[in-house]
Amino acid sequence: MANYSSNQLKNGLKVMLDGDPCNMLDVEFVKPGKGQAFTRVKLRNLLTGRVWERTFKSNETIESADVMDTDMEYLYNDGEMWHFMDPNSFEQVAAEKNAVGDAAKWLKEQDKITVTLWNGNPIAVTPPNFVELEVVETDPGVKGDTAQGGSKPATLTTGAVVRVPLFIEIGEKLRIDTRTGEYVSRA
């Protein structure tokens, strides 16, 4: 695996620290006028999600992490694992609950998903920014109420529950922003 020296560090770099793959979120060069240079880095541990800061000295070397974001198609959930396929190679990977995390509630079969692979194994799953999902359960719609602000919970095919306007009916397809978990519009 390649090594980086601390002057090559930059945002988005994937490195191994204490045995875990980490992503560099923010890299700051710190140099007292007369003193040694340091590099202060904000990092995210890609396995645990923990965000913290570490400071490196200018001559330190840091091991790179074999981490790749790959566009994949979501196939199915077998009750334990989530299965994805690379549409180019048709290669399949299975991700555990830890890796899928909160993304699980936005996964719809055949959707394009970004799967983060570390040494070929999925460690994180990122749904598209917007997904279209059908309402399977909600209180009856209130006819004509399109202007007023009220909202109600609705359960979607994936099990996700979102706040929707009062006029939404069971069976409607909705557009949802997965980053905020908010209703955007009817699809």
Binding site: V30, Q36, W52, T55
Partner: peptide, 21 residues
């Protein structure tokens, strides 16, 4: 107070580190 993976025997390097951080 800081997460560090290096060592150094130069006292001023440590003082500079704490001063700047």
């Amino acid at each position: 107070h800081l997460d560090l993976s290096f060592d150094d025997e130069d006292r001023d390097t440590w003082l500079n580190l704490l001063m700047s951080h």
